[in-house]
Design a protein around this nucleic acid. Structure first.
Lengths: 139, 139
DNA sequence: TGCTAAATTGGACTAAGTCCAAAGAAGCTC
DNA sequence: GAGCTTCTTTGGACTTAGTCCAATTTAGCA
């Protein structure tokens, strides 16, 4: 497990450092879509002491390397998640929860490539609405 | 022109105030996708003096009322634009420019309603890539 | 083991956004 | 059109998110 993390970091052409390994492990352990602050607290909880600036650095590097991805979910602090399969996000406008929405069932591109004046390399979709638990709790 | 702005505000059930009218007019005059700061400077340029907090308030209210919309374009300050037709955004990862991408040519829903655990009320798509002018200028 | 480039540190700084109590203005009623 | 009520604005303090930088430490190579 832990070995594969160091392997992935090395494969990405990055130096294997305590901070990077711990950041990925923490993000994996926490699961979901986490802010830099949550990750920093997670690191502290695991006994890994890292400077705030380092958490920003590390996550930025890992995101550039593709080991973690920025979970676009609209305004608010940037959220990161462990890079897995291609998916989008459903954001509840009431409780703010973010859930993954699988990208097209056929595994292909879920959105028609739009006609833009340039070259699209990445498409992100944010579904907004009310999640089932908020619907249930709504009076 | 100006009358229609006051009309729209009133129709939305909001009081017609100097700040609200000026904010919409300024956003219309500036065009595009503007940050609170740009709008505040635009207001100052027009001789309308408003507190920073008011600009945040006003834009928040107008957005809630649907008179302006938040132009989701990933990290960075929130950007607003005058509510027009349904469209998405193409963000250049080099120069940061944001261009509108019309929603499906047939005028209908451009994205399949995804299977989510709740009710989707709104879908926003962010296309990322390199705009044509950056492609041209790229050596 | 020693060297060098890369990563981390921590503290200062800027930008984005929120909060709140007091003052001011919109728009209804008579 | 005066008065009243309620909503809006004000401005300043505050919080949070993120950047910057020079000094220090560390990973990984020879």
């Amino acid at each position: 497990m832990s070995d594969s993390v160091t392997g992935r970091i090395r494969n990405a052409g990055l130096r294997v450092t305590r901070g990077r390994v711990a950041a990925i492990e923490t993000l994996q352990a926490l699961g979901g879509h986490r802010t830099v602050d949550e990750i920093a607290r997670g690191l502290t909880g695991r006994g890994v002491k890292v400077a705030r600036a380092t958490v920003f650095n590390v996550l930025g590097d890992l995101a550039t390397a593709g080991l973690v991805v920025i979970a676009d979910a609209g305004p608010g602090p940037t959220r990161y998640e462990v890079a897995t399969y291609d998916h989008h996000h459903f954001v509840c406008t009431i409780c703010g929860s973010i859930t993954d929405v699988p990208c097209a069932e056929n595994g292909g591109q879920c959105i028609e490539p739009a006609v833009v004046d340039g070259t699209v390399s990445n498409v992100q979709v944010i579904y907004r609405g009310v999640c089932s638990s908020c619907e249930a709790g709504d009076t």
